[in-house]
Each structure stands twice: as C-alpha cells, then as structure tokens.
Design a binder for these strands. Structure first.
Lengths: 364, 364
DNA sequence: ATATTTTACTTAAACGATATAGCAAAAAAA
DNA sequence: TTTTTTTGCTATATCGTTTAAGTAAAATAT
C-alpha cells in the first residue's frame, strides 16, 4: 500500500485502560463471537435444540417447560448470547439482509435514498448492504453477484444503461428484486419510480405558463427510461403550446466540456428558459450562469431537479421538481419484503407523483 | 404497512420474457444459491476437499494433479459456481466484510466517506456494511452489535458522544477497530482524524490576518474532541492576536432555533467574522445571511467547513476548511485491514492536515 | 393392569464451506 | 526385494444454527 498522504502517524502508549475495568461491565457486552448455543446448552444442562427453540420464541409450540424456558432465557442473557447470523442464514436459507445497488452513494440523491432504505428496512427487521455501480453495467453485475453470494434475501437496484441482461437473469432466477428510480418497460419486474413524464410536463408547462417563449432542456444522452420520460414530458408540454422542442443532449463522460457546449448552444439559439432534469445538470447550469453573468429569471428561466442546499442558497432561489425520496424508498422496501415473505407476490409497478417547487428562478 | 403515499400501482402483464431465452445465456449467470462444492465434486468425480483446494488456488500447496485441477476449474466455470460466503465465513471465521458506522449516511460529508471507504475496501477485496447512528450512542451500539453478529472482520466507526463504553468494550474484545473523524484521547484505539486544531487555527488566523477585528465561532455543544479541537484551534488563534474569544455553542436538538439565537447574539455583539466548524452550521449561516441581508464579506467575514456546491454557488463564494476525505477514508481502511491481517499490528493514530480554501467570503 | 396420549425433552442430520489427518499407489532409494 | 518417499487423492470433523424425527417418562384412558 502506498502512502501518498500528508499525515503524521502517532503511536499511542500501551493502553492504560485495556484491562482497567475488566471485571465489571455496565450494560450488555459486545463480544466477538464467543458464546454459542452449545455453550448455553451446556451451562443449562439441556440440548442445543431446546435452547434454539426457546430463544426463537417457539417455546409454546414445542411444549417446553416454563421453568426450563425461563432458565435458558436467563442464562442466555447472562452469557450475553448473540446469534451467529451467518450460521443461521446458512441453515435457514434466509439472512434478513437486503442488497441495494445505487449509481453512486456519494451523490446526495442516492445518499438520501440509501438512508431512507436503511431506516425502512430497519423498521422491518432487516439490514442492508450497499454498493455503487458508477453507472457501469459490468460493475453492477459484479456487485449484485457479490451480494447474492453474501446471501441477501432480495435486491433493490437502480439499474444503469445496458443492464437489461443482468436484470433479466435475476428475474429468471426468481430473485426478489425491485428496481428503483428507473425501470425497463420490456422486463416484467417490480419497480418504484417517479412519474417522470408528469414531473417533466409540469415543470415545462410551468415555464411556458410563466411567459417564456423558447424553452429548452439539457438532458443526458442515455436510453434509460427515466431520462426518456423526462424528455417526453418536456416535449409534450412544448408541443401542446405550439412551440418547437429544443433538446440538447450530453454524454456522461467528459461531462463538463459537453455541458459547456450544450449550454453555449442553448444561449446562442436564444433559448430563454431551461428545464434541467437532474441535480447534476442543474448544478452545472448554476455554475455556468454565475460564470457568464446570466440574469435569472429575466434572461433565462430555470426549473431544476431534486433540490438541495445549493438551490436554496443560489442568488436566485431555484425552482425544481421535488421527488418524494422517502416514499420511493419506503415503497421499494415494502414491495421487496412482500416479495420475500410472500413467495408468490405479484409484480408491482409503482409510479409516484412528484411536486413542483416554484421559486424565483422561473418567475420573470 | 400503511400506505400514506401518493402513487398508483400498475400491475404488469405476465411476463412475455420470463422464459424467453432460458436455454442460452450470454455471459456468466447469476444464480440464487444452487451450485455447491458438492455438486462440482460429484460432476468431477472427486471429493469436495479437492474442489475447495483447487478453487482457492491451493492446488500446488496440496499437490493436486494438474489435469484434475484444470478439470475442476472448468466444471466450476461451466456450472457457474459461486461460493456461499456465509458458509465460508462460518467455517473460516473471517468474512471479508467490514462494518462502517457513520452519523448519517445522507449527510454529504459521510456519504463521500462511505463511497471512499467502499472503493478502498473493494480494492483490497472486502465489502462493506453501512449503518447510521444518528449521533445516538444507543443506536450506535445496536448497529455495531448487529454488524458483529453478521461476522464483520472489523469496524470503522465515527463515534458519537457518550459512546466511550462501547468503544472500550470493542477494544477489550480485541475487535479490529478504527475510529474515523473523531477519537477519544483516553482510549487506546486506532484512529484517523483531521488535524482539527490546526485547521481551526489556520481558518481563524486567516480571518484575523484579513483584518477582521472580532472573530467568533458557532460550534456544537458536544464534548467530542473533533469539535473541542476546532474550538481550541480557534481560541489559540484569537488569543495569539490578543483578541477575546467569542464562542457560541448550540445544542444539536432544536438546532434551527438554537442556531438562530446564536447568530443573532453574534451580530448583536458586533462580531465581524465567523468561523463555522461544520457544513451544517455553515449552511445554516448562509441561510441566515440571505434572510437578514447581511453583507459578505464586508459586514461579516466567513470561513466554513467541508465545502460543497452551496459554498461555490452562494452569492459570495465561501472560504472553507477542506478535509482530505479520500485520504482519511483510505487510511482508515488500510489501518483496519492491517489490524485484521496482521493480528498484532500496533495501534495507530493518524492526524491528517486539512487545507484552507480561500474565497471572497473572507476577503473584505 | 395395560394401552394410549401427553409432556418435555434429545438425537442427529442438515446448510456449504475449510482443513486436518490419513490412505493407497507409484516412484525412488536402500 | 524391501523400505522409504512422494504423489494424488479421500474421509471426516468442524463452524453455529435449525428442525424433523424420535424417545422416555408421566398422566390419562380403557
């Protein structure tokens, strides 16, 4: 391992606390792995089966003596027993974990989703494995494969472009799966997405209603349907108003340059309002606006996506489409767990309506 | 489960693709759990031990015939074998997973840390379990306990206030552990933190050098040493300049109200520059500034923390202390894995120097 | 008094991998 | 030829659970 870093290592003195209060402990202990069912069984003078039953609350069901049950429970508590979940998973075939693959967990939008999924899963007694695919189908497949090897009970996936095969395969193998944020029309799989068409329509329509005469959109050049739906929604609105569409697409790689070019073109073409269908694009646009002293909302009207501190704190507060992130996440978890628990739950597609937050950036 | 959500459920038609191309498959398959060592052994006509050896690259070591090894390898590939990592973990006592507990993964700072840890761990062949503690010692303990039950090989923890006991206990139980972002001076445990004292000193000193006469700080009312060190650094700088310290502390709960009060007091007291030692505090401050039409940098000088789009896009670009997040994360992973691999690696404390990004907000 | 049922537990086989100890056959050494 | 060594593999215990199947003793029924 290289050390490219600018730091200083400080070796601490041998610990004066290490065995300080070894003999007493306040609350429940956290132990590495020691105590097993066998240990409890030994101490209680019963079989491991009994212990397992009692500890899983199947005492009644298996007609275990009340006295014995109490005894076992007490010993388990005393010894601070913690089940080895790997072993349980191995035996029972279900681990209580969910796998979540997003594009990039450092992206605030997905970070929020991750958090909401974490909470929702926790409420339903599951824990979550996260992974970032970086919009690479290959990486996504590797991640999913790893998650499955780790025995997750199901997956929530934000699919990237060209990942249809992987998704198909998961379906074919009956792995509980919910797509999030984006879905594939041709694959029969559960999904939870924003009503992107509607959101984009509303956003564009709002710009038009505000009096802008030439509304454009700067979108990613991807076939993923969330982006296509946003473009469709935009087109629908401009068409309805009898305007020409101004769709500027940019590739994700070499983003900065591509964005700059698109933006310049928009300005040259006399576009007087822009719908920006992702946070990243919106943020880039705000930078461009600052750098080129474009006047918002007079010279250029703006509706962005997803929101964030930067939107609120920009010199002119930015209007945006707000996704109900929490609802999307909760719904995805609910559907997934339903599929896991209820083996033959039906495939569900959920489309949640977003809201338009209107600020000054779109009110000339 | 309640459905408080605004959505419509769309039931998809039964899948026309479900068995579409069941007979051929392009790339490697993702299978739920089917193929085991035993299956391969059976097909190859050898024992499971052989298969295990070969697949783990211990062929030479165990003098396995080249021919046989090749054969096994090929069958494994054909059957698309994927090891059950739970089983391996159970048997070998090591799972190749790391547990990471941060305050809140939806916080951009920690989201970035999560991402960097994920990448670093991946490079070193491990995967990561994340959890958010919400700055609650109780929740942190529960999370850690769960992670240990899941068999993580080690932990990276952003400890919260009052979590000393839990950390002590982990040490006592020899669980590989690295604290991140914050550490406890009295506990002999590895840590990777920013040189907070230095960073705060630099930031404050910069404000003083810029000519501000009454520099204040708005900090959280927590005993955690990252915050205390930031306050100390601030105090050192003002003291050195012969100025009085203006430390305004706020509780984390009821944050908005508390912040407002602190901010008002600062302005009333004639503070002409502020050092804001976290992102959250900085963002709140920017909101306050907008709401109260405070002139930056003339009326009030500003140095924030951690950066972000909002800092760049604010009407006056905001100066800030930049943490080398990537380096912090990578270092934490390196140290942790070193502790895991090299059982008696020594405890290391690493303090990385941050840099001051100067913008207009601190140049009157 | 014997048969049946109920109660309260135990045995032991999995789950899928790893790893130690051991065994036969072939090759080399004596 | 016999002994030793090497080569190439197998058998099996084990990790910590769960769970089906079984059993022995006590209680109830006949």
């Amino acid at each position: 391992m290289q050390n490219l870093l600018d730091y200083e290592i400080i070796l601490l003195p041998l610990c004066r606390y290490l065995h300080a209060n070894a003999s007493f402990m306040k609350t429940e202990m956290i132990t590495l792995k020691k105590v097993s069912l066998k240990d409890i069984a030994a101490k209680a003078g019963v079989s491991t089966a009994l212990v397992s039953f009692v500890l899983n609350g199947k005492g009644q069901e298996h007609r275990i003596g009340e006295e014995t049950a109490r005894h076992i429970l007490q010993i388990a508590k005393e010894m601070n027993y913690r089940p080895n979940l790997a072993a349980r998973g191995l035996r029972s075939g279900t681990t209580g974990t969910l796998g979540v693959v997003v594009s990039d967990i450092s992206n605030p939008f997905f970070a929020q989703i991750a958090r909401d999924i974490e909470d929702a899963a926790d409420k339903l007694g599951r824990t979550v494995f996260f992974g970032s695919s970086d919009e690479s189908a290959e990486k996504m497949k590797t991640l999913i494969s790893g998650l499955i090897n780790r025995g997750v009970d199901g997956l929530i996936v934000v699919p990237c472009e060209h990942s249809e095969d992987t998704i198909q395969e998961l379906c074919k193998n009956k792995i509980p799966l919910v797509l999030l944020d984006r879905n594939f029309n041709d694959i029969n799989v559960s999904y939870v997405v924003l009503d992107n068409f509607n959101a984009a329509y509303k956003a564009t329509r709002h710009l038009i209603d505000s009096g802008y005469k030439k509304v454009g959109i700067i979108a990613y050049d991807v076939k993923l349907n969330h982006m296509q739906d946003r473009i469709r929604g935009y087109k629908e609105a401009v068409a309805e108003a009898g305007m020409a569409a101004n769709v500027l697409v940019i590739k994700q790689k070499n983003f900065d340059k591509a964005f700059d070019k698109a933006m310049r073109k928009a300005m040259d073409d006399g576009v007087d309002a822009l719908f920006l269908p992702t946070v990243t694009i919106t943020i880039s646009c705000l930078h461009y606006i600052n750098d080129h002293n474009i006047e918002i909302p007079k010279q250029l009207g703006l509706v962005g996506f997803d929101g964030g501190d930067a939107f609120d704190l920009f010199s002119v507060p930015v209007s945006y489409v707000s996704q109900p992130v929490r609802h999307l996440s909760v719904k995805a978890v609910e559907i997934l767990i339903d599929m896991i628990v209820n083996k033959n739950a039906s495939v569900q597609g959920v489309r949640i309506v977003g809201s338009l937050i209107v600020r000054q950036s779109s009110l000339p």
